[in-house]
Design a protein around this nucleic acid. Structure first.
Length: 736
DNA sequence: GAGTTTGAAACT
DNA sequence: CAGTTTCAAACTC
């Protein structure tokens, strides 16, 4: 008892210290002095009070507080039904941004590999949280201000800056990436600066970041719709989103930067569009949300950042050539982002190019200094969604997960992905690969480090092309949407930034031939029962190859087999012989097919099964007039688990009544030439709202959204990005 | 590291 | 669409 009291006393002292710290008058005249009592009465303050001093210190150094599994999953954040107050929240953020003159005193990192990775992590945390704030349940008066524990502001140049608007953090991150790495402060206290930010953001937006906004909006709406449904971040969706988020480059200082809050939030977008707003002072209400924000939202993305940051730091220190190269690989897609943007129109064909490039992109922010093959150094770069380029097509995971777009769900929710910068080359732009880090958020752990190393090594493609000039799909780099890098042993390589136009043109040609040429080869689907990805993902039902293999002699037991290489079982798509795929052979698929037939038979009694013709007709009819309505989306999403569970490549997001049809497809699959789920960038139905895209039946997609390949769309599906205009594409504008 | 095998990509 | 060729990764030695 005595000890407890002593501890309590200590904590109180610390809290007092913190509060005084928070309350320290700012040198900035605009700083508003908030009565201490206000903080003390705050639930957040109570929260801080509950923190032990030791943990506070800990958080300063390792950021583990945010990485700690003790934080709840982000689900609550993303599933909030109260997102409709987004705008309010946005406004609040803006107000706070302006009302927090000192908030920018966050410790900024000088770049990857620089001295303060922990700071970077913190920033990542904040930025991550920022993204979530917008979707945090919020009342009309919710003030999205995060009252950060003192610990989080370690190293802060300004002790007054304890109040950190998440957006500010995000922006701060950008400042950092803008090469102002030496700066420890970003002038957020300056309205002028804010305007500048707005301008820049707007410019960025004009160049293509509208995708971010759109996605964000979509995301928000989706989140609203996605109540308690078990939804998944479909890997393809991520890549798709990444594509969408593809940022233009070379025009602004914010090149290559998309903060993670691009996902699931829109406050920044709002901010972009608006100048300085009237500042409400002392609006630090609802600070009790903080724990949720920190515990929930952070986990979703923060971890990613953290991992990436640490990885980079490790990389810089380790001087591992391999790693260096991998990290410095420049993303072709990254470059192409701008190109896309310059091509305002998109076609059904072109649409496919989107997913193609990003096979596995997940938004991430990271800053790092890189050097290209020639040894140029450049400061870079925030990883944007698509630009960051998560090439899941690339082997980003262990052998069994190669080429698999992979976001797995765990019992507790989504398995976080770790993002690993792959390479940035001379542009400093980075490509990220992902890896599962569900178990270890502590990137400091040896295991994690090893894990990262392995993944980085595996993730970065190197080719050995001799005749293709690395401009054909033979080339793994090219196929992955990457420029070749130094470790490549290719000859006469044209797949490099110097030949960008050639590369783009070639890509365009290839995509015109096969719009899905650059799409992920393997896509995981969800578990039928839970809606989550199958834990093992080694069953035909959980994932399969886009086209299927054609193995004759390898029995699908060697990496010659793309299915095997992708760590998935063979499916009916495969034309392999003597399939013995250990991840699930074709026979197993046939069994599943039979199961589906049974299901169909049963269902026939109840609803009736459409004939092939009927199905096609329906698809055609619906394709002509189906607006994507939120409710429809909800329904579609609701049916996803069922539909998705089929190992037969059943469409995703079908309307409930289409389930029958899907089963029927099993029977006629080869005739219908359906685009399987994995052939299109998979959508997201994640309640985590990393993405807000829905993969819908082609028949439900307005033609102009065109995500179907020209060759596969008939009777198939389209990927619909609600509220999102056509996607830019490599394809020529006339390819509609 | 060289040679072989394999199957995807590209071509006809 | 099928058959053939080209290609580069995977594999073996």
């Amino acid at each position: 008892m005595e000890m407890e009291m002593e501890i309590v006393a200590q904590e109180e002292d610390i809290c007092r210290d913190v509060s005084s710290h928070l309350k320290t008058p700012s040198k900035d005249p605009t700083t508003t002095s908030v009565p201490l009592s206000q903080f003390e009465d705050s639930p957040v303050f109570n929260y801080i009070n509950n923190l032990s001093p030791i943990e506070l210190v800990k958080s300063i150094q390792t950021n583990q507080a945010y990485n700690s599994p003790s934080f709840a999953s982000p689900l609550p954040v993303f599933t909030s039904p109260q997102l409709n107050s987004k705008r309010d929240a946005d406004s609040s953020i803006r107000r706070h941004l302006l009302s927090m003159p000192s908030i920018t005193q966050l410790p900024l990192v000088k770049g990857v590999g620089s001295s303060t990775p922990s700071c970077s992590e913190q920033l990542g945390c904040f930025a991550s949280s920022a993204s979530d704030v917008s979707i945090e349940p919020s009342g009309d008066k919710l003030e999205l201000t995060i009252e950060l524990p003192k610990a989080l502001n370690s190293d802060s140049a300004n002790p007054n800056s304890s109040m950190v608007p998440v957006n500010a953090i995000s922006v701060g991150y950008q400042c950092e990436a803008r090469g102002k790495l030496e700066e420890r402060h970003c002038p957020y206290d300056d309205d002028k600066f804010l305007r500048k930010i707005s301008r820049v953001e707007q410019r960025r937006d004009e160049e293509g970041c509208d995708w971010v906004m759109l996605i964000s909006d979509f995301d928000s709406s989706v989140t609203e719709e996605q109540t308690e449904e078990q939804k998944l971040v479909d890997p393809g969706t991520i890549s798709f989103i990444s594509d969408v988020l593809d940022t233009p480059h070379g025009k602004t200082n914010f090149d290559n930067m998309i903060t993670i809050d691009s996902f699931g939030s829109s406050e920044q977008n709002e901010m972009e569009q608006s100048g300085p707003l009237p500042v409400g002072i002392g609006e630090q209400k609802h600070t009790d949300e903080i724990p949720n924000i920190l515990s929930g939202s952070l986990m979703n993305k923060l971890v990613v950042k953290d991992a990436a940051t640490k990885l980079v730091a490790e990389e810089d220190s380790s001087q591992s050539n391999c790693k260096q190269h991998s990290i410095r690989r420049r993303s072709l897609l990254f470059e192409m982002a701008g190109t896309y943007k310059r091509e305002p129109t998109c076609s059904s064909n072109s649409s496919s190019s989107l997913p193609s490039q990003l096979d596995h992109t997940v938004p991430i922010i990271q800053n790092r200094t890189t050097s290209n093959r020639a040894g140029q150094d450049s400061t870079s770069s925030m990883f944007s969604g698509r630009d960051a380029g998560f090439y899941i097509n690339a082997p980003i995971t262990n052998s069994t997960d190669d080429n698999v777009a992979n976001i797995q769900a765990t019992d507790s929710g989504i398995q976080e992905r770790n993002l690993v910068p792959c390479d940035t080359r001379d542009t400093g732009k980075a490509v990220l690969v992902s890896m599962d880090i569900s178990e270890e958020f502590d990137s400091n752990s040896p295991r994690m480090k090893k894990h990262k190393m392995e993944h980085v090594t595996a993730a970065c493609k190197r080719c050995n092309c001799k005749r293709s000039k690395c401009l054909k799909l033979y080339c793994e780099c090219f196929a992955a949407g990457l420029y070749c890098i130094e470790p490549c042993s290719c000859q006469d390589c044209l797949n490099e930034p110097a030949h960008e136009s050639t590369v783009l043109e070639t890509r365009k040609q290839i995509e015109s031939r096969n719009p899905l040429a650059f799409a992920p080869k393997v896509i995981r689907t969800t578990d039928s029962a839970t809606g989550f990805l199958d834990a093992s993902n080694k069953t035909p039902a959980s994932a399969r190859h886009k086209k299927g293999c054609n193995c004759k002699k390898s029995s699908c037991l060697k990496k010659y087999c793309e299915c095997f290489q992708g760590g998935v079982g063979c499916s009916f798509h495969c034309r392999c012989e003597a399939c013995k795929n250990s991840f699930g052979n074709k026979n197993g698929f046939e069994e599943n097919e039979l199961d589906c037939e049974e299901f169909k038979a049963k269902d026939k009694n109840a609803v009736g099964v459409a004939s092939n013709d009927e199905m096609m007709k329906r698809a055609k009819d619906e394709d002509q007039n189906l607006p994507i309505h939120p409710e429809a989306n909800r329904q579609l999403s609701g049916s996803l688990a069922v539909v998705d569970s089929s190992p037969t490549g059943i469409r995703v997001g079908q309307k409930p009544e289409s389930v029958n049809l899907s089963c029927g497809q099993v029977k006629i699959k080869k005739h219908l030439q359906m685009i399987s789920k994995d052939e299109t960038p998979d959508v997201l139905t994640s309640k985590h709202s990393l993405t807000s895209v829905k993969l819908l039946n082609c028949k439900t997609a307005p033609p102009h959204h065109g995500f179907c390949s020209s060759t596969h769309c008939k009777g198939s599906r389209k990927l619909i990005l609600r509220s999102v205009p056509r996607f830019p594409s490599l394809s020529s504008p006339h390819q509609q």
